[in-house]
Design a protein around this nucleic acid. Structure first.
Lengths: 341, 341
DNA sequence: CGATCTCGTTAAAACGTTTTACAGGCGTCG
DNA sequence: CGACGCCTGTAAAACGTTTTAACGAGATCG
C-alpha cells in the first residue's frame, strides 16, 4: 500500500492535507499535538494519514526545527588502547549503555570510533549534543565541539574545559589501587601512565608520588605514548624490569598497558602475582581475559553513561545543571594478578 | 571568531556569497566541487568561508539532497541474550567494526540497541541504510525497513526476505561444533536453541538431527524462549540433566544459553569437561569469561561487518550487487569446556 | 448592541541548501 | 560573419516541514 510500483514520490504532509480537506498546518498540529484540533478534524487527518501511508520526512523536520534527535559519543583515545573490533573497551561499553539511555529519551546515538577522519561526522551529520570520553587537555574533538558550541558532556574529567562533566573520583581510584598493591605485599612498584594530558594520568601520578614520599618508596614512573599500545608497554616494561630488579608491583590506569606489562613479566621469567603484582584501572575484556586475570576497578560505566545522558538532556534543553556530577564510587575487583587464588 | 557574544544567527551560505561577492550557487559549487569555478573566484569564496567561520548546515544539506550520511545497525535479539551494558555482545562487536568501516566511507553509524521503542529511530531520524543482524523470519525491524524501502543488508541470514545478505555458513558452523563434541568424547548430547525463527536455530537443529540419525544417537533438543536468557537456560537444562543422566555434551548457538547450561552442570554436581562438554557458537565475553572458558567459534565479525558495510554502500548507491556474500569461514577455538587442559 | 476575547483553522513565510535553466562572453568552425 | 558550443556565473525554484500572523465565527462582557 505505502509504496507504489514505480517508486513514486513519497507522500508529503500536503498530500495528507489535501486528502483530509484541511491545511498542512492543521495536519502538522494534529500530528505533533502542538495545538488543539477539533476531534472530528483530527479524525479526518488520522484517517488520511493511515490511508496514504504517510510517514513524516525526518530530514525536513530536523531541518525546520533544528533538532536532530541524535547525539554522538566520541573518544579521542587512540585505537591501540581503545576500542578495536576484537577488544571492545571503554568506548563501546559506554556506548552500549548510552545508546539505550538515549533511546529512552527519544534520541539516537551515533557511534564515533577513534579514527583519523572522525571529525567529519560533525560536518556531515547534525547532532544535538555529544558525549566526550576522558578528553585530554588539548582534545581535538573538544576543540571542535566547543567551536560549534554543541552541547557536550564529558565523562571522567572535563579536560580543563568548562563543559559539564560526570566526574570520576581519580584520587579514590588511585588510592584503591595503591592500597591494594601494598596490602598484597608489594613494596616497590612501577606506575605506567600515558603521555597524553588526561586527568587520569595526572591524578594517578600525583597520588602515586605522594604515597611514595609518605612511605619512603623510590618512585618509578614510566610514561608511554598511548599510540604504542600493548606491545609498546611490553617492550618498555621489560626494560625497566631488567634495570630495577626490586620492582614487585605494577599499576597502570590503561588496561592495554597493564596487559602489556603482564607479558613483560612473563618474558622476564618472573611470576604473577608471587614475584610481581599487576593491577589496572579499567575492567574490560583485556583485564578479564588476561592470564592471570587482572585485578581492576569496577567503574560502573553503565551508570556513568546514564548519568551522562541525563545531564546532556538538560544541557541540550538549554537548562542549567551542575558543572560536575560525581560518578558512582569505583569498587575493587580482586583477581589472581595480585593475590594467590 | 566563529560565534559572537549574543549567540548570533549562524552564518549561512548566502552570507558567504555576499561577502565573496558571488551567488550562493557559486559558493555551493565551490565547496562541493560540483562544477568547476575559476581559481580566482574559488579563492575569494574560500577566504570568505574562512573569515566568517562558515560551516555548512548539515541538516539543510541532508534535507535538500535526501542523503543522511548515516546508517543504522539493528538487532532484534532480545536484551537478555544480546548486548547489555556489562555483557557486550554480537551487536556491539559488529557495531564497533561497522562504525569504523562506515566512517571510512563518510557515513556515521547510529547504534540501535534492542529496546522496545527502538523503532522510533526510524521515525525521528533519517538514515540512508541499515544493517540488520540475524533477523528472524518475522523480524519487526525487517518489516519496517522493507515498508519504508530503506536499503538494508542483513548479517547472517536474510530471514526469508529478499534483502542482500552477508551469509553465514550455518551448516559448517554446526558441523564444526558437532564434530568437535564427538572428537572430545561426547556421545549423547543436548542441543539448546532459541524458539524464534532464526536461521541459526533451524540450521543447527537440522544438522544436529541429521548427525543424530547417522550415528544412531538419541536426539535431545531443548527449545527456549530467547527472552528467558541465561537464567532460563540454567533452569531448563538442569531439568534435562536430571531426566537424562546419559547426556555428556551440550551445544548451543546462543552464548547466553551455553553459559546458563554451564551453571546447570555445576549445580548438578557434574564436571566440565570430564562429565559433560559444553560448546557454543558465538565467542563473546560470556564464552571467554565463563569458568571454565567455553569452546566457541571465531566468527570473524570484524570482517563480516566490513563486508556488510561495503555491500550496503553499493545498495545505497542504487547499484546492483550479489544477493548473498559469503562470510569468512568460522574457526574453532578450543577451550577447557570441551577438552582437559 | 457594539466591543472584546477565545477558538479552530489557514495562508504564507521561513529554514539553508542544491539544482535547474538560463545568460552572457568568448572562441571556433563553417 | 553568423552559428554554435563551451565556460563561468546567476536567478529562482524546489525540498517538506513548522511557525507566525491573521481571519472568521461564535461567545462573553460592559
Amino acid at each position: 500500500m505505502t509504496n507504489d510500483p514505480m517508486r513514486l514520490k513519497r507522500v508529503s504532509i500536503t498530500d495528507v492535507a489535501k486528502a483530509a480537506g484541511v491545511s498542512p498546518a492543521t495536519v502538522s498540529n494534529a500530528l505533533n499535538k502542538t495545538r488543539h484540533v477539533e476531534a472530528e478534524t483530527l479524525d479526518r487527518v488520522m484517517r488520511a494519514v493511515r490511508e496514504l501511508g504517510y510517514v513524516p520526512n525526518a530530514a525536513a523536520r530536523r531541518f525546520r526545527t533544528g533538532r536532530a534527535n541524535s547525539i554522538a559519543v566520541f573518544s579521542s583515545m587512540p585505537a591501540p588502547v581503545a576500542a578495536g573490533p576484537s577488544k571492545l573497551g571503554f568506548l563501546m561499553e559506554i556506548a552500549a549503555a548510552a545508546a539505550e539511555a538515549a533511546l529512552h529519551h527519544g534520541l539516537a546515538l551515533v557511534l564515533v570510533p577513534p579514527v583519523p577522519n572522525a571529525a567529519q561526522v560533525l560536518r556531515d551529520t547534525s547532532i544535538d549534543g555529544a558525549l566526550l570520553i576522558e578528553p585530554s587537555a588539548d582534545d581535538p574533538f573538544g576543540q571542535i565541539l566547543r567551536d560549534r558550541n554543541i552541547p557536550t558532556v564529558t565523562i571522567g574529567d572535563s579536560g580543563g574545559s568548562d563543559m559539564p562533566c560526570i566526574q570520576f573520583d581519580y584520587p579514590l581510584m588511585a588510592r584503591l589501587m595503591l592500597d591494594h598493591l601494598r596490602d598484597a605485599g608489594a613494596r616497590e612498584f612501577l606506575l605506567v601512565v600515558g603521555s597524553s594530558k588526561r586527568a587520569t594520568h595526572a591524578a594517578m601520578r600525583s597520588a602515586y608520588l605522594a604515597q611514595a614520599e609518605a612511605t619512603g618508596m623510590t618512585p618509578h614512573v614510566l610514561e608511554l605514548d598511548e599510540e604504542l599500545g600493548e606491545a609498546g608497554a611490553t617492550r618498555m616494561v621489560a626494560e625497566i624490569l631488567r634495570d630495577r630488579p626490586g620492582v614487585d608491583g605494577i599499576m597502570s590506569p590503561v588496561d592495554a598497558f597493564a596487559s602489556g606489562a603482564l607479558q613483560a613479566v612473563r618474558l622476564a621469567g618472573r611470576r604473577v602475582p608471587e614475584d610481581i603484582r599487576v593491577i589496572t584501572r579499567y575492567d574490560g575484556a583485556r583485564a578479564r581475559e588476561a592470564n592471570p586475570q587482572l585485578t581492576a576497578l569496577n567503574l560502573k560505566l553503565d551508570r556513568v553513561a546514564r548519568l551522562a545522558i541525563d545531564r546532556l538532556i538538560i544541557e541540550i534543553a538549554g537548562g542549567v545543571g551542575p558543572a560536575t556530577t560525581p560518578a558512582p564510587a569505583p569498587a575493587l575487583i580482586v583477581r589472581p594478578s595480585t593475590v594467590i587464588a
